[in-house]
Each structure stands twice: as structure tokens, then as C-alpha cells.
Amino acid sequence: MVNPSQDAPAQAKNKKVLIENLEIKYGDTVALTDVNLDIEANEIYGIIGPANSGKTSFLNCINRMDDMRPNMSTTGRVWFNGIDVTNWRNLYSLRRQIGVVFPLPVGLPLTVYNNVALAPQLSGINKKADLDEIVERCLRRAALWDEVKDRLDSLGSLLSGGQQQRLTIARALSQEPDLLMLDEFSIAVDPVTTMRIEDVLKELKKEMTIILVTNLVQQAQRLADRTAFFLNGRMVEMGKTEDLFAGKVQHQETLDYIEGRFG
């Protein structure tokens, strides 16, 4: 485990995530620039904005998935728990602390059980009883247990879209993450299931920090404590969600977006 950098700014130490002057490029194309924000522990931090505004690229910087994309380059600093992740060497240990839920459910070609048990196994938990307990707890929390408890040995990819998405949430929870990042999780999920997952997220907030990237403005309004608005590769503004939705904004674009006047 890497020790906190000596030059960590004071404010980085008591924030869950602190972003300074982040810029992301794909080749010569700037995908996102000039992002400065901080995320408190145990808050749900909403990020809203239309497609191509750099939201997913932003998430990739936090768990250093940029490492997998050769043409993606980032400048600036990303502090996670007071540690500069841009210089983090053991990326696997970083990623184990951060759970990710992708927009389209990726049910790994494993059984339902193994989908959830994989992350604990990767971090060295091998006792059947421990794994059983983790799998049941995570599936319950993701509001999926009742539907799959009799078919834990069937392939995860055979579940319906909404079930697969809850499976990926259970999988993310099985890492016991410190930070949970959800990237437009509700795209492939019906509204009823979405509401159930949202209730789950409100509960989870007690234990972890959540970054919620969403294209549903109302979802951010329902869930997020604070919200940032990304547009065309820039962070337009951020603020308390209730303020933004009450119209206390610094930029007209933000108001236009959250009131649905463009997009």
C-alpha cells in the first residue's frame, strides 16, 4: 500500500476524492478539461450532462482505467483518501477499493454465484462459508436475492437485463468498496427496478461514498447531495443539488439543462 504523498494538500486529507486541474485527452482531442472538485466521504455525488461531455472519462481517471487505454492521457491530480492516484503503482489494489457499475450490464460468463464471489476470491477469500455469506449479503443488498436464490448456479448472462444490472451492483458491493461509481446504471433497467436500486443506494451511502453519473436529471435530484454539471468536455459548475434545482445557478446553461430546455 502506498503511503500518502508528502505533498498532499491539506484539504485532500479530509476529502474522499479531490480533483485538481484534471485534463483528459484522447490523442490530440481534449475530452475533458479544467475539472476541479472535491467529494466528501459518505455523500452521493451526482454528475449530470449530455453524452460526450466527458463523464465516463472522468470516472476512468479515478480508478485509473486510463492505464488500459494507450491513447488516453491525463494531466492534473486525482487524490483518493489523501493519496495521489495518478502516481499509484499497484493499480489492482486501488481498483479493489473502488466498485464500478457500467452503463450496460456486463454479466461475466460465470454463474450468478461466481459473478459475485469473484472479487472476494481475487482478494484471497476462499472459504466456502465466507463466500456464501458474502454472495447472499450482496445479492440481498442489490435487491436481487429473492429472484436468483434458486438459480445461483446458472449463468449470469442468462438473467434479464435488469437482473444483470443488479448482479453487477452486487458484484461491485462484493468488493466492499470504499467508493462506488455508477455510470448511468439505469439505462438498461426498468423504472420500478431503478427505484429499488435507488433505495439501495440511499442505504449504501451510510457505508461508502458514491459517485453517480446519470443522464436522468431527476435521478440526480432524487439522490445526489451535490451535483456537478459537465458539458462539452468542461465542468460548467457544481453545487448543492437542492440549490441547483432551486435555480440558484451561476450559468444559464445549467438551468437550461436541468429544466430540459436543451439536450
Partner: peptide
């Protein structure tokens, strides 16, 4: 033919390259 999404999902969970291959890509 194994979708890249599988690899990314496993890597995002903190799986090492070899764990991704052994646990996800080869079974698939």
C-alpha cells in the same frame, strides 16, 4: 471473440492481468 467488456469489468474489480485471463477470458 470474448467481449472487451468482460475484461474491463474484471479489471475494474482489481483483477490482475493473469486473473482476468484465468478467471474470465479462458472460461468464456
Amino acid at each position: 471473440a470474448v467481449p472487451d467488456g468482460f475484461r474491463e469489468a474484471a479489471e475494474a474489480m482489481g483483477a490482475t492481468k493473469w486473473q482476468v485471463i484465468y478467471k474470465v477470458v479462458l472460461p468464456a
